[in-house]
Nucleic acid binder design. Structure first.
Lengths: 108, 108
DNA sequence: TCATTGTATCATTGTATCCTGATATATGTC
DNA sequence: GACATATATCAGGATACAATGATACAATGA
């Protein structure tokens, strides 16, 4: 039962790392609609090519996306249908805004 | 349809912030089993009282937990059953380890 | 082979976030 | 009121992370 908790913490860490950055969140949201290529994502997401590449690499490292070379392009997609469903459920959750803190930063 | 995306991004940001720190992940995992009080959480999580308090405040700011004073204690719990289910689904997802990068940090 | 396109990596710099120790606030008890 | 317990806030220093510009690598076509 302790090992299960540790696995749960590891999974949460992967999601935490993946979701902690706005570029990565945009990428994930975009990949929920289907596979994508870095050069195309670059038209939809406002950042530089190296930065996008780096974030894609991060998402792959977290295990949330897979990549496969196709000629000189690389196709990125969500790692599993399971994951796609879970993300879809996540984004549809309505989180209340704590009115006592609405004027403060969400952090700290 | 653009507004929906923006709401989705906001929700993902809340989860990203909440899950980005190991203390917060432990708190969330613990609160999935039921409400908790800071002083009790302090026995289960290895950190200082101010730090724990700060992370609880962060989670409340993200909208993932609610707090209610009970005498001189404060009860913290997950914001909704919906959220509890979503988190439960999240932690049960099996993410493959990218063997090409298993030796590297998950980030960058 | 050379040029072009697409993607990845590297070093540097700036910033955000976390932790700590001290202190403040709140509630309850004597 | 004085004290104890429970929680929250603050200022600081340390660290990790993201962005940038330059460059390297990979694959295709002329």
């Amino acid at each position: 039962m302790r090992l299960m908790t540790s696995a749960a913490l590891d999974t949460l860490e992967r999601f935490g790392t993946a979701l902690a950055d706005p570029i990565r969140r945009q990428i994930l949201l975009r990949l929920m609609t289907g596979p994508g290529y870095p050069n195309d994502l670059l038209d939809e997401i406002d950042t530089t090519q190296p930065n996008l590449s780096n974030h894609l690499s991060c998402l792959r490292g977290c295990g949330l996306v897979t990549s496969q070379r196709e000629g000189r392009r690389v196709r990125y997609e969500l790692a599993s249908p399971n994951l796609a469903h879970a993300l879809s459920d996540l984004v549809s959750i309505e989180l209340e805004i704590d009115s006592n803190h609405a004027d403060l930063d969400r952090r700290s």
